[in-house]
Every structure is written in C-alpha cells, then in structure tokens.
C-alpha cells in the first residue's frame, strides 16, 4: 500500500505514458484499424475517396449498422446482448407501414404506436433477463425467433405479400422522408442525412455513457452487478432501460428505412444483429461487459461500411467480404484482450 510513498508518488505517474493512456481507451484499436483500412482501399481504388465513394460507404456504415451499434454497445457494456435487435428494426418499420397503408391510421399516430410497441418489446427483454437471471443471449434468441415469425406472419396476413409498401402514398409522408431520408449533395456525392443522425446518436450515446449517472450505472452493472447492487445502483432498472433504449433505436432505424424508400421487406434484419455486435466488439467493447465505447462501436460500423464498399471498388468478388469481417473480428477480440490486460496490469 501507499501510506509511505508520498515522496515517490510522482515518479510512478510517469510510467503511464501517452501511449498507455491511449491504449487504455477502448476505441483506440478501432481507430487504428479504420485508418489502416481507409489507406488500404485508397491505394486500391481512387473511387473510394471520391465524393460519391465516401457517400456510399458512409451510407453503408450509418444505417442500420452505425446507428444500431450505439445502443448495442451500451447494452454490451451493461453486460448483455440483444440478438433480437436486428429483427426489431423490421418489426418497427413493418408496424408503421401496416398501420398507415393497410389500416389507414394517421402516420404520426402510427409512429407513436410503433414506438410504444418497441418500448414494450425492449421492456419484455429486459424484464425477463433481470427476472430470470438467465443469459440475455438465450432470452433474446427467443425474442429473435418470435419476432422473425411475427414479422413474416403478420405481413403475409395483412398484405398477402412479404413486403409492406406504398408508404409513399400516405399523407404526411414527404415531410417525414425529408427529416430522416433526404440526401445532401456535396461534390457530386449524395450523402444521406442518416449519416448526421448517426453522428448525433453517437455523440449523445457517448455523452450519456461517460458523463451521466446512468452511464456510470451501465459500466457498473456490466462490470460487477453484485457489487453495484450492494452500493445502491439500481441494476435491474438500468438493464431494462438499456434494452428499451435498444428497441427505441430499432424504432428509429426501422422507420427511417421504410420512410426512405416507402417499403420494407418482412425478412429484413435477420443476421444484422450479429453485425451490430461485431461493430461493438471491433469498437473495443468487452463481451463480458463493463468496458467499451460508443464511439468505438461507431468506428466499428465505419470499418464495416468501408470494407463492404471498398471490396466492390477494388473490383474484388464481394463474397470475400465476410472473410474480411471474420478476420477483423478475431483481430479485434485479441486486441481487446491484450488492451484489457494491459489496462488492468497490476502494480501490486
């Protein structure tokens, strides 16, 4: 212990150099990775850095991956997964679409009902996880399968198709499309406004996580739920809130998607939940909870977007994309392990 080390105190700080401080930041690895991948595809194709190219990969990164990576990272830091996050995106958009085009409900009323539905789904996920103490993996796997069935079953029932469309014929559509689905042209590239929403949600998510009590409780609940409970952290409420935030973001993303094009496939979202998790892990979130960064997760989604489009620009077969993502994920997990050990390295 250190009662007698006052005189040596300052020397010890010197050991924690700039590099180590940066390494300790969870998003460090993702930032380096993003830079490497950017430079790599830049050398492969000049289109990659053209305005149109940048717009393309930013679009691929932002929606649904980037925006969903924000709450998924927070949830993972809080110690849980949501395997139903991907299909929830579809549930939210399909619900709005069915209520407006098939049931004739006002579009704003439909959005509110859809939001309430999503919050209820998030609540059920969180409640079951906290109440049963079962791994969120298994609870949300159930929700994933269930919602996948509902998405397709309900859509077929109402529309006799596997798509909900014609939202663009609904009154009030154009204004909402402008808010979430318009594009801004810069230097010939069409930048979807979703990129701005992505940046905004990343900033808000990061602020909440690092600067608020709720953020402190999120880290603590994921780090050691028992210790947290014993010092008065409402761990169950925190967990339920994190699941509800995830569902609320799925509401935003699902409705943005259907408002952008006027239609949405009932099967949409299946498989994306894993990409959200991959983005969070590449961004430095520990699978075991208690550590990670929202900015990192967004950079993880950016890496995903750059790679997906970069492979096309480089003229490779896009089938190689998944291999790329797989290798990156493994590298990220190894790097996280290393960074964590380094960060925790004891000076006992």
């Amino acid at each position: 212990m250190t009662t007698a080390t006052a005189t040596r105190g300052d020397e010890r700080i010197a050991h924690v150099g700039l590099l180590r401080r940066q390494l300790v930041k969870p998003e460090f690895g993702a930032l380096v990775g993003a830079l490497v991948i950017f430079v790599f595809f830049w050398t492969q194709s000049s289109v990659f850095v053209s305005s149109a190219g940048v717009a393309n990969w930013l679009d691929a990164a932002s929606i649904p991956f980037g925006i969903m990576a924000v709450p998924v990272a927070m949830l993972m830091i809080g110690g849980h997964f949501d395997l139903s996050a991907g299909v929830q995106v579809a549930t939210a958009g399909l619900a709005t679409g069915i209520m407006t085009t098939y049931w004739g409900l006002n579009v704003y009323a439909s959005l509110v009902v859809s939001l309430l539905l999503m919050l209820a789904i998030g609540f059920v996920n969180g409640y079951l996880v906290t109440r049963t103490g079962l791994p969120s993996f298994i609870i949300t796997l159930g929700m994933f399968l269930g919602l996948q069935g509902v998405n397709i079953g309900a859509t077929k029932q109402v529309t006799n198709k596997v798509t909900v469309d014609n939202l663009n014929l609904v009154p009030g559509y154009q204004f909402l499309k402008d808010v979430v689905g318009s594009t801004i042209t810069i230097g010939g590239g069409q930048f979807p406004i979703a990129i701005l929403w992505w940046v905004l949600f990343t900033a808000i998510g990061s602020w909440v996580l690092l600067k608020t009590r709720f953020g402190n409780w999120t880290f603590a609940t994921g780090g050691d739920p028992n210790a947290s409970k014993n010092v008065g952290v409402p761990t169950n409420r925190t967990t339920i809130a994190l699941f509800m935030i995830t569902s609320a973001m799925a509401w935003f993303v699902g409705n943005t998607l259907i408002l952008r094009s006027g239609s949405l496939q009932a099967q949409f979202g299946v498989g994306t939940e894993l990409i959200f998790i991959v983005a969070a892990v590449i961004g430095g979130c520990l699978l075991t909870g208690g550590y990670g960064s929202v900015i990192g997760a967004s950079v993880g989604a950016l890496i995903f977007g750059m790679t997906q489009q970069g492979i096309v620009y480089a003229g490779w077969d896009s089938d190689w994309f998944k291999l790329f993502v797989g290798v990156m994920l493994l590298l990220a997990v190894l790097a996280n392990q290393f960074v964590r050990r380094y960060a925790e390295q004891s000076r006992r």
Binding site: F219, A220, A227
Partner: peptide, 22 residues
C-alpha cells in the same frame, strides 16, 4: 464495507468511490 469490497475492477477509483451516490 463489504468483505468483497463491492468495487468494480474495470472502473476508475473516482467512479467507484461515488458509485450509486453520484
């Protein structure tokens, strides 16, 4: 002061200090 101390190892000292009473 619990026997297991009820601290969260990955969190900083100041965050642990005020945990639950921020």
């Amino acid at each position: 002061v619990f026997q297991d101390l009820a601290v969260v190892p990955l969190m900083s000292i100041w965050r642990n200090f005020f945990l639950g009473s921020e």
